[in-house]
Amino acid sequence: MMRAAAPQDGECVQRRGDETRRRILGAALDLFARDGFEATTVRTIADACGLTDAALYYYFRSKRAILNALWQAPQINALDAVPVRPALTEQVLSELVDAMLAVNARQNAFIRILVQQALAGDPIAVAMHKDAMARWRRYLTPHFEASFDRDDAALRVDLFMMLTIGLTFSDQMDHGAAYASLGLHPAYRERVKAIANIVLGPRDRAPA
């Protein structure tokens, strides 16, 4: 009887351990985003999870190990699929803006850590930024190539990305953690779509 019960206990401990790990990662994500990686102490993270430092070190060897675990979180690959249409219409552009804003809002804390670490010269963060840019380019290119030749499409993809970086970072600077909800607000999305449509949409508007 005793023997048979043992694995069950083990499983239970394992499950509780996984949950604690997730809790630590969640707290670290918010704290790193708010205060920066350097300024956040292991003690602050432990406090936020109701753990002692020693208990936290049982799960992660160091603060750096927590950051590395955050980098590996699967969330960064989640881009909503937008089907490629025969032409880049206002509708397609609007769906691409929605996809971009959804990812940025969902990953607000993650992006804020990544940007601050890249600014501090962390080579992993710099590589991840470049990687994310390359992924966005691949994601956007077929939509623009539906309406433009290869070179023109590449420039328009670049314009879309630089516009959204300027916009997203400005709003993250002003709103910090609250950007996560701002980015999904319907009025905000309409504003971004209007700007994107004016510089990248089909040009059939009346001249001045």
């Binding site: 890249a118 710099v126 700007i195």
Partner: peptide
């Protein structure tokens, strides 16, 4: 030059300027 869309074009171009600079700072340190 552009009529009523002028200010929005200007705003976009301003944001693109920031985007180019910020992306380059992140990429090149």
């Amino acid at each position: 030059l552009y009529g009523e869309t002028g200010p929005a074009i200007l705003e976009a171009v301003g944001l693109v300027t920031l985007g180019i600079i910020w992306d380059a700072i992140l990429s090149y340190g």
